[in-house]
Design a binder for these strands. Structure first.
Lengths: 346, 346
DNA sequence: CCCGGTAACGATACCGGTAACGTTTACAAC
DNA sequence: GTTGTAAACGTTACCGGTATCGTTACCGGG
């Protein structure tokens, strides 16, 4: 293995000079730079990152913590974030957590052992951040949720304006003529991945504005953030409230499970029941029928998040909280309600 | 930050002893072990992995190289592999490559800079391994493809017996009465992710055995490994050969795109065209209609792969090549062919 | 000519661990 | 009592970088 010493020996300069060349320090002559760079290329030398990171104390890769690996929406962002980070020459580590783990605890532990330069959270529970977020001693970015109200000094956040989008969805369904709308997804308690808490708030506002009563008992059903979760929850929801003519699934993954459940109950989409999702994952564009949904701009989300993190790592920029634009995508899964036929068992 | 020195000071022992306790070395008294462990817990000390890895030369995390991130099948395995590795206390790094990158080159570069303990490849091009595989100087495991014929000393592989499974699929379709079967996916050349090369071979055997001629020109269509790829390729395939009554998509992701394309051409599944996939991803269980497919045991694949890698890293075990059992899952996307109606454009 | 300043570079301490080796102590064997 | 041996522990070199600091050589100004 070639080390900086070999480069020094072969180039006729000292390791100090070689190090300066590598790190673009000024105190090095043109001649030395050229010679050293040549040798580095010849040997295709790569500085040992362990040594570098050990010396520079506290930093290795940027760690992406993905909370809820069954949520396919994250996978799109993950890929993007990872790619951008790689192109920026950063190391990337990934930790997948299930929907119910404490991502902040995980981050704190990783800080002690791995010493990452920073974290990017794909999903996260604000309660956990409120409790222990300050213990994470490196810059963090939270994606797909906002930490605006948290008063943390180390956490930026970028997300769709979930509240507004939630409002948009319900408003849209009501305008289509649906008065009995069901909502599935998110957890009633604040435990869990907590995505959808704000979305729900927007929904309630929309109902209120239209003068409609929303009975959380019979029109709402919590759900794991997965297709299987959506499937089960839809069955439960429609069983306890057969009047429902439209379902808002708080994530596309859940919506796909919901559509399958509806079909299995002998009903058709959108004739009997309309379905609308949230996220805009690729799969939703290929379902039969195509899924109507709120499309979040993953590309932008990823880019902004990474940009923010790098600026803060390298130049101690201030934290930012920003809402990213969303668009509603009309697929084929929503129609005006019609007179309901009997629900057939299967 | 607490270091091993702090532990030494606080426990009244030397750093040598502390190190021995941490690493379970024998030469340490019961009293010392207990005391040191207590202090470690109190301070909740985590050894600095950079220092450790620097000293131990050549090793940091185990790196998972995912080739073709649009292939949802990999994401299931990735999650599993990652979880098992984490439970084993290993660091995990992930690199996502697109379908057309050279994963072996990437691994070689990572070896120089990152010094991982080993690699797990999710998908891979055998040609690349044949060329440069020997340059990767750490243990590797290839998942979802076999390196049996490669004569590499550092590469184990676990995969479904693709050839046999390919045979099974075509045999099944033919027994259902389909004589004009189309195949999409995989690349005709050996460049690209190359998944499906063996699958194709099994297919050809099945056609031959049943005395059917398979015209690669009109019955085969290469495809990117994504829903979008499946969509486009299906359109092309059905355009150049409208006689086809069944399509074998060489991956479920492709199959989902195919189903959508068929639907958009005004045909129905499975009445007009049967579709069968390969992989057994979760999405396929929620499509409408449910996708028939070859289900690969991701859990087993992941477990065997990780187990193999760890054994070889820690105990220099020999390499292994093993075929994992597959099962055919009958969904709702395959039926006996019927008299074809005209293809309507859309 | 001498001095101060500076560009360019070398020598070296240090980061936090590991492991080889040396030292101490206790105890058994002779 | 001396010696051998092994357990238990301390000391220290080393991993491959970075950064500080010291050194050298050369420059211009007085």
């Amino acid at each position: 293995m070639t080390t900086i010493k070999d480069i020094a020996r072969l180039s006729g300069y000292s390791i100090g000079t070689v190090s300066r060349v590598i790190n673009n320090h000024p105190d090095v002559s043109e001649a030395a730079r050229i010679k050293v760079e040549q040798v580095i290329r010849e040997q295709n030398f790569q500085p040992n990152s362990n040594a570098k990171q050990l010396k520079q104390q506290s930093n290795s890769a940027i760690t992406i913590i993905v909370k809820g690996y069954e949520n396919m929406f994250f996978e799109g962002i993950l890929e993007r974030v990872q790619a951008i980070l790689r192109d920026s020459g950063e190391d990337v580590a990934v930790a997948f957590l299930d929907e119910y783990s404490n991502e902040v605890q995980t981050a704190i532990q990783l800080c002690a052992a791995r010493k990452p330069k920073g974290f990017i959270f794909l999903g996260g529970n604000l309660e956990f951040f409120k409790q222990d977020g300050h213990k994470i001693d490196v810059p963090c970015v939270l994606l797909t949720n906002t930490a605006k109200d948290l008063e943390l000094t180390n956490l930026s956040s970028y997300s769709t304006n979930d509240e507004e989008a939630g409002y948009t969805v319900i408003d849209y369904l009501i305008r289509q003529g649906h008065s009995k709308v069901g909502i599935i997804g998110g957890s009633a308690s604040r435990i869990g991945s907590q995505i959808g808490f704000r979305r729900m708030k927007g929904c309630l506002d929309a109902f209120a504005e239209h003068g409609l009563f929303f009975d959380e008992k019979t029109q709402y059903q919590p759900s794991r953030f997965s297709m299987a979760g959506g499937y089960e929850s839809t069955q439960k929801l429609l069983k306890k409230n057969p009047e429902i003519t439209a379902i808002f699934a708080i994530g596309d993954t859940i919506a796909i499970g919901a559509m399958r459940a509806i079909k299995d109950m002998g009903l058709s989409i959108p004739e009997d029941i309309s379905v609308i999702g949230y996220d805009g994952i690729e799969s939703g564009r290929y379902t039969i029928p195509r899924l109507s949904t709120i499309h979040q701009d993953t590309e932008l989300l990823a880019r902004k998040g990474v940009e923010d993190l790098l600026l803060r790592i390298n130049y101690s920029h201030p934290i930012t909280h920003e809402d990213i634009n969303y668009t509603m995508v009309e697929g084929e899964s929503v129609a005006k309600p019609r007179k309901r036929k009997e629900i057939r068992g299967r």
